[in-house]
Computed example of a mutant assay.
Amino acid sequence: MTRPNISFEFFPPKSLAASFRLWDTVQALAPFAPEFVSVTYGAGGTTRKLTHDAVTTIGKATGLNVAAHLTCVDSSREETLAIAANYAKAGVRDLVALRGDTPGGGAFIPRADGFTDSIELIEGLANAGDFNIRVGAYPETHPESTDMAQNIAWLKRKFEAGATSAITQFFFDPDTFFRFRDACQAAGIDGDRILPGILPIENWAGARKFAQSCGTQIPAEIRQAFENAARDNCHELLALAQCSELCSDLLDGGVQDLHFYTLNTPNLTRDTCRALGIEPEVKLQNVA
């Protein structure tokens, strides 16, 4: 089997302890030679500086290709493009462009001087510089879309606006991704430009809550299996088996890229990569 392209998502730390946790995660996963890693942007731009610091620090310390998240929330067009320009000056050319969510999860209301939606943001970034722009995709329909057709039409507009690839929301059933990919291809979107987002389930209660908030369906058999595993104290074994099987099914279905939402916890992502035959690349230095 050809080695798949892998990538990892981190979030910026808000405390000293969280900084150590992020750095431990980066050190554990960097040897797997990801195509890129991304750093998220808090709701309402609450981690704007933290995101910038994490992006530049990870890039300088590891040499990894780091993608910075940018959103439309609580920033003017001028401010957002200035942030992008600062990234470009720091050598960061990969961006993840998202509309973003307001703090507290309320309805998104654009600023009068800001980008009104993800399409405008993508167009602005595409016109501002030579960026590789990644966007979000929703294999189970965005909560604000009326149906899958509208969902896919909006994704197609993102590519027409200048997006180069899309990363999906996480899902539990590989057929969910395959149906979405096929529908995108039927609409004229290159399926190879859509990266499946994978959530290793380090914490079942947290994953269940996360799924509910973003409209991800949990198959009954998976829900029951994790509830049984929690009772029988074998969560780690089940989590590794579930994540590895999902990734393996995707690769068997022709997927070439896997994007892992690490939640700054490396163990399950690392073990899944190894279960798939993806080993860390050891670099020998200063050998006598």
Rank of each mutant, 00 (worst) to 15 (best):
N151D: 14
E123V: 11
F115H: 09
M148D: 12
G136S: 15
D192K: 13
F178V: 02
E160A: 15
P139W: 02
A149I: 03
D182K: 11
G100I: 09
R157D: 12
R181W: 09
S118T: 15
I109H: 09
T168P: 05
E140V: 03
G206H: 14
R134D: 11
Q185S: 15
G104K: 08
R193F: 00
F178M: 11
R99T: 08
A187R: 13
T164V: 13
I152E: 00
G197T: 10
R134W: 08
Q150F: 01
I194L: 15
E120V: 05
H142A: 00
D101W: 02
D182W: 06
A128C: 11
D173K: 10
D147T: 07
Q150I: 00
G106I: 05
F171A: 06
A137Q: 03
T146M: 09
T102F: 04
F115N: 04
S118G: 15
A137S: 10
N132Y: 13
I189E: 01
E202A: 13
T141W: 00
L195E: 13
I167G: 03
R99H: 06
D113E: 14
A205M: 13
N203Y: 12
L155V: 06
D182G: 08
Y138D: 03
D175F: 04
R134N: 12
R181K: 15
R134A: 14
R179I: 09
D190M: 05
K156G: 06
Q169L: 01
V96P: 00
A187D: 10
P110T: 11
N203R: 13
